[in-house]
Design a protein around this nucleic acid. Sequence first.
RNA 1: GCGCACGUGGCGUAAUUGGUAGCCGCGCUAGACUUAGGAUCUAGUGUCUGACGACGUGGGGGUUCGAGUCCCUUCGUGCGCACCA
Length: 920
Amino acid sequence: MEYNHKEIESRWQNYWRENQTYKTVENPDKKKFYVLDMFPYPSGAGLHVGHPLGYIASDIYARFKRQQGFNVLHPMGYDAYGLPAEQYAIQTGQHPEKTTNENIARYRSQLDKIGFSFDWSREIRTCDPEYYKWTQWAFMQMFNSYYDLDERKACPISRLTEHFSLHGSEGIHPAATKEIAFTAEEWNALSEKEQRERLMNYRIAYQGETMVNWCPKLGTVLANDEVSEGLSVRGGFPVEQKMMNQWCLRVSAYAPRLLDDLDTLEWSDSLKETQRNWIGRSEGAEMRFPVADKDIELEIFTTRADTIFGVTFMVLAPESAYVPMLTAPEQEDAVKAYLDEVKHKTERERQIEKKVSGVFTGSYAINPLTGKKIPVWVSDYVLAGYGTGAIMAVPAHDSRDYAFARHFSLPVIPLIEGADVSEQSFDAKEGKMINSCGPKLDLNGLDVKEAIAKTKKFIEEEGLGKVKVNYRLRDAIFSRQRYWGEPFPVYYKDGTAYLMEESALPLQLPAVSSYLPTEDGQPPLGRAENWTTPEGYPIELCTMPGFAGSSAYYLRYMDPHNDKALVSKEADEYWRNVDLYVGGSEHATGHLMYSRFWNKFLYDLGLVVEPEPFRKLVNQGMIQGRTNFVYRIKNTNTFVSHGLRKEYDTTPIRVDVNIVSNDVLDTEAFRSWRPEYADAEFVLEDGKYICGYAVEKMSKSMFNVVNPDDIVDRYGADTLRLYEMFLGPVEQSKPWDTNGIDGVNRFLKKLWGLFGKADLTAGKEMTREEKKAVHKLIRKITEDIENFSYNTSVAAFMIAVNDLTSLKSTNKDAMDIITRLIAPFAPHIAEEFWHRLGHEGSVVDAEWPEYDEKALVEDTVKYPVSFNGKMRFMVEAPATASKEDVERLALSDSNASRWLDGKTPKKVIVVPGKIVNIVI
RNA sequence: GCGCACGUGGCGUAAUUGGUAGCCGCGCUAGACUUAGGAUCUAGUGUCUGACGACGUGGGGGUUCGAGUCCCUUCGUGCGCACCA
């Protein structure tokens, strides 16, 4: 009987649906396992063949764990808020919900064809009120919390206000935007409005005037991870810096924990490194420099306290609050001119120019160690948002300070022995200190590391400053001037933000007449009628960013229909966190950081039991497109084959990969592809038209998109699944190449044939060879799945099937084991076999087979043979051979006589299974 | 510039983790069969050589009886961060 994938696959997909085979129910008697894919944004283009790669890998793992007896949670849903649907809505006037739902329906039908074991009863959509109620609810908890630096956790804001009213800011250390000191009397004297304003300084979800990434083209602000090299990640539009009053999340407060807990995770080193870079911990010292003739101290941050004797100038960021304080009257015009110049440059312009610029303030600081006067400058190479926005410049040992010093002819004092600073700075933290002796501190002769430690100690003792750890991680900007997102449960009374009651949740998106900003520049929600509370107070017009909905979605799958809580205590304590998370590494600094933060916040509140959301993470590689080219001879409609194109003057043209097979063009299909090619002529080689190719991003415009539906239709889902895994390691990026899929399809046909010929009589023992082939396979597949090494698994199946085919007879037990082993990879064909073998129920619950050590003993063992400890050759002996047999074999080898050269060995040592040592 | 990966046939890849490099598949070559196909089966396929054999894991060096694997160095590719003081 032929292998008919269409008939088999549709039959079992229906069976799974009718029997709710993949529905998961909490079961305290079974150990849990949570396998999660990063949920997709349902774009209008549908799935291409690259999307399912990670889903297939995780599905294999989920099915494997289920067969091992775990209660597996393997859900799927949609990250449904997003810019493309809104952009489309702006163009067409169609509600984004409509396009989103259409796209979701398309995704679902594509996913269903591949045979995933998702529990669809737990599906979630971020734009569903039942879901986003809890996104809004989490925001409210963050608004009502502050981060306590002493307890290293989030605490209720009421605790803070209570403390303020009793003791002022004394004796409590909340993470703050700005450090403010005040007494209880001062606090109590503030009006309610003023108190609320001050609390914004501490709330975890707070409103603040901050420098934001403003994208005029998208009409919205963006988070740091949504901007790359001065352009928006979505769309690639220029992004400028702008001060705006925005909702923010105090992610920075969690920086130390986000960093430390990375060590507890099973993530790839490179991804952890990326997060470490992004968090950017640096240990240093905050120091105060008195300003000459003024009652001001200039506070700076440095990691190189040891270089204090080489400070020849100070630099302030243009936005620094020190600038107006330190600008001398005679320099006022020059400083103002410089600030104007800087302000008009976008982030991108600043980056591209990389031109040294700056202006002298007219003031001098005093080096606290030498008493020398040093000039204070302003320059945009110092960032306002990092450290204190002011630095001490040591041109000899910092390349940026060096460039600045050379440009403005400022002095350079070398501090390290043998460092040549005539051409460039010496930035390395190594060497012996020189020129570093003052009245109270002598660093000369010390190693740099010792000098740093000694200086830090000194400045703490002398009260010149304090040791401090700084982080690069910034707070996340949480407002978007957009329509298609979660509304904030916030209204304004007299310009002050108030939270709504919890009973108002979910706060649903109102209808608007247009999705564009209003004429006076308000976000689209400004167009909504009656966008007020029942009392008539206006509601926030911004919506939440994409990461709001995706930050805690893994929790919601545990208890998706609960309308009393984000997740019930019982469900959370059972499922805890994600055991295996699969998704792209492009989320390293965005989603994966926000989710960890969000989870830690909920953990602090005692709402979840695990401090980290994703225990093990696997990043699947990107599947790139493999674009095919045809070569048109200039000014003609004649196309020349790839090998002959050099003989003509040609233009390469991208051609739809779906009319090309193994790089051979279907010339008829090409003629009917587009009207202008209807009368195309071809110059062939060997009777074929061969196309060229290049690896590019898979996209419609490159004509290189391969739709999984087409592959499933032609070869079946099982072939697609196996082939995607066979392509190479899951983590690796690679171009999609349909060439080669025949090999995998052939394997499935062989397996089908093997089953057809098998002797299904029960109770017959496997032969020795069968046993060996089958148990080798069990061991290999079990190891491979744990290691995510699916490409070698597929190879192992191929070998086993070839072995068994050549053995002629195959018995029932062997087929039974192979069926269980292949079930995670090719569930449809496995289900078919499972039922033909006479089993009840689904192969999903088939117990994973254990391998038999005895069946695995190799026939032969290889021994390295050494003479006086020097290895000379290898000899192969039967596994059952005795020491004496091995010795005899080694000595009778033709190599042995060469090395012995007629002598008799003094002694022969045989270590069973290891080595033969011959002493001459 | 700093950090992290990686470099093996014509191609995708594999190598019990230091033990005979190239498993499996694609492609290619030859043959068989045939209802002539984008089907199936058999054999071969790292390079050089008629053969024996020699050489082979980006280049150079080292450790070791033995190196794709470990160390140093150099070249190249990919990714992340980047005026972060």
